[in-house]
């Protein structure tokens, strides 16, 4: 019965949220680098998924679709904020430790070098998103490309540039004003970011 199916769908969605909210939030936190922003991002993603849940739930991997929605929203938002962020960066330090980072550090949760954390914070969102998918989610380049809506070659080049950027920022020869160069590596030709359709 359609109504029964609908109710089952609601139950499925609640289970889906319960099962993936933590993972999505952690990933979002690494991409946007801000806890409040990450919560907003995940919430908006889940709202959108809820609207399309009767179709999404039939997918083989609803969690993968959720990740695509999240990343596309994150990168679209990053584009909108880029200009404003650039202005802020020009007038402030390259990376100021936020309260949540300081708390994590105080609890001993952040063992990585502060230089690396600071360098990651300064990456363009798309670069950081690519690194998150490759080195946190541990996804192959083909899946990263599918999630980000770009080619495998773009994933490789973005990863390479991001790593090189990290090396530069962590290295001894790092220029003093390098943080001013925040031109993101958006794909200006071809790929446009849209929220993926459930059928895609």
């Amino acid at each position: 019965m359609p109504r029964v199916a609908h109710r089952q769908g609601r139950g499925d969605f609640e289970q889906f949220v319960a099962g993936c909210a933590d993972d999505l939030l952690r990933t979002a936190y690494l991409v946007v680098w801000d806890l409040a922003g990450a919560e907003d991002l995940v919430q908006e993603s889940l709202f959108r998924i809820a609207r399309r849940w009767p179709r999404v739930r039939l997918m083989e991997h609803p969690a993968a679709y959720a990740r695509r929605v999240l990343f596309n929203l994150a990168l679209d938002d990053a584009k909108r904020r880029y200009r404003h962020r650039s202005e802020l960066v020009r007038s402030g330090p390259p990376h100021e430790e936020r309260a949540d980072e300081a708390a994590a550090r105080a609890l001993g949760l952040v063992e990585a070098t502060p230089e690396l954390v600071g360098a990651l914070a300064e990456l363009a969102p798309r670069q950081r998103a690519t690194l998150v998918l490759r080195y946190f989610e541990d996804l192959p380049e083909t899946q990263v490309a599918a999630i980000l809506g770009c080619s495998v070659g773009t994933v490789k080049s973005t990863t390479s540039r991001a790593l090189e950027r990290l090396r530069q920022k962590m290295g001894p020869g790092r220029p003093e004003n390098e943080h001013l160069d925040l031109q993101p590596v958006y794909e200006t030709k071809g790929a446009q970011h849209h929220e993926p359709g459930p059928g895609s």
Binding site: L25, L30, V42, E101, L107, A112, Y135, F136
Partner: peptide
Amino acid sequence: LEAELTKAFAARASAVPPDAAARLRAVDYH
């Protein structure tokens, strides 16, 4: 660097407070 990166991401991800995810789970998305 890649190993450090994985470690840094994992460490930062572990800093997400549990109540943040709980807030997300409590939202009625329907």
